[in-house]
C-alpha cells in the first residue's frame, strides 16, 4: 500500500484541524490570562499585545485563591497517600487469592461508576456530620479517597496480574510471609502501577467539584474548582482576565503532573480494555 502525495497532504491537514480544535480552548485561556479586560473583548482572538501580570496580582491579593490553592494541594496529596495505602493490599488480594465474594466485590467496585453524585453527596454528608467533618479538609479527603478507591483497586489488580507468582514463591520458601513478599517483591515491581494510581487520584481530587461544593461552605475552605465556580457564577459582571488567570493556575499543576504520569495511567487503563 502506498499513499499518494495529495492524500498525504490531506491527512496532515485533517490532523492539524482536529488538533487545533483540541488545543484552541487552552491557548485562549493562556491568552486571556495575559490580557487586560478591555483587550479581551476588543481583540478576543489576538495574541496578547502587551502581556500583563495585573490579573495575577489581583487574583493573588484580592481573592482567597492562595489559601484555596493550599487546600487543593493538601486534599490532593493526602487523598493520594490514603488511596495508595488502602488499594495496594486490596489490589494484591484480588489478583492473588481466590475467595468467596471475589466477583461480587469486583462488580461492586466497577458499579460505583454509576452511583449518582446527588445520592452519594446526601449519604456522605450524613457520615461527615456524624464525625463533625463538614467544611473541613479531612472530610473532603475521605470523600475523595472513597471516590477514587474502587477504580484504583481495579487498576492495581491489573498490574499485579502481570507480575509472575513464581517470583514470590521462592521468597515463601525462604520464610517470607505474604505481606513481606508483597512489600519486598511485588510492590517494587508495581511502581509504574502505583504511579498510575497516584496520577489518576490526584487528577480526580484536584478537579473534583460536586462534593467540594456541597461540603465546603466558607470561602477560606474552598478548593480551587469551587473558588472558580463562585468567581464565575456570583452574579453581576464576570472579570474574565483574573478568572482566566485563576483558571490557568488551577490547570497548570495537573497538566504538568500529567505530562510525567500519563504513560503509567494510560497503560493501566488500556490494558484492561484490550484483549
Amino acid at each position: 500500500m502506498r499513499m499518494t502525495g495529495g492524500k498525504q497532504v490531506m491527512l496532515h491537514l485533517c490532523v492539524l484541524v482536529l488538533i487545533a480544535i483540541v488545543l484552541f480552548p487552552s491557548v485562549l485561556l493562556v491568552f486571556n490570562a495575559l490580557k487586560t479586560e478591555t483587550e479581551i473583548f476588543n481583540h478576543p482572538l489576538g495574541v496578547p499585545r502587551s502581556p500583563t501580570l495585573q490579573n495575577l496580582r489581583s487574583v493573588a491579593l484580592d481573592t482567597t485563591f492562595v489559601v484555596n490553592l493550599r487546600n487543593s494541594a493538601i486534599v490532593g496529596l493526602c487523598t493520594v497517600l490514603i488511596v495508595v495505602i488502602v488499594t495496594a493490599p486490596a489490589g494484591y488480594a484480588l489478583s492473588r487469592f481466590k475467595f468467596r465474594g471475589r466477583t461480587l466485590f469486583s462488580t461492586l467496585l466497577l458499579a460505583t461508576q454509576a452511583f449518582p453524585g446527588i445520592i452519594m453527596a446526601l449519604g456522605l454528608l450524613t457520615v461527615l456530620i456524624t464525625y463533625g467533618l463538614v467544611n473541613r479538609l479531612p472530610g473532603l479527603i475521605i470523600m475523595h479517597a472513597g471516590f477514587s478507591m474502587p477504580f484504583s483497586i481495579w487498576l492495581l489488580k491489573g498490574y499485579f496480574d502481570e507480575i509472575p507468582v513464581a517470583l514470590e514463591e521462592s521468597s515463601w520458601i525462604d520464610g517470607c510471609t505474604r505481606l513481606q513478599s508483597l512489600t519486598r517483591i511485588v510492590l517494587p515491581l508495581a511502581v509504574p502501577g502505583l504511579l498510575g494510581v497516584a496520577t489518576f487520584t490526584l487528577l480526580l481530587s484536584w478537579g473534583e467539584f460536586f462534593f467540594a461544593l456541597v461540603v465546603m461552605r466558607s470561602p477560606e475552605m474552598y478548593t480551587l474548582p469551587v473558588f472558580l465556580a463562585h468567581f464565575v457564577g456570583s452574579g453581576g459582571i464576570v472579570e474574565w482576565g483574573p478568572l482566566s488567570t485563576a483558571g490557568l493556575l488551577t490547570a497548570l499543576p495537573p497538566v504538568i503532573l500529567f505530562v510525567f504520569g500519563q504513560r503509567y495511567l494510560i497503560s493501566g487503563l488500556t490494558r484492561g480494555a484490550l484483549k
Partner: peptide, 18 residues
Amino acid sequence: AIIPWALPRVVVSLIWRY
C-alpha cells in the same frame, strides 16, 4: 491530543462559557 485530559472540568467549562 491527550493533554486536555488533565484540565479540571470547571476550568474547561469556564473557557467554553467565554
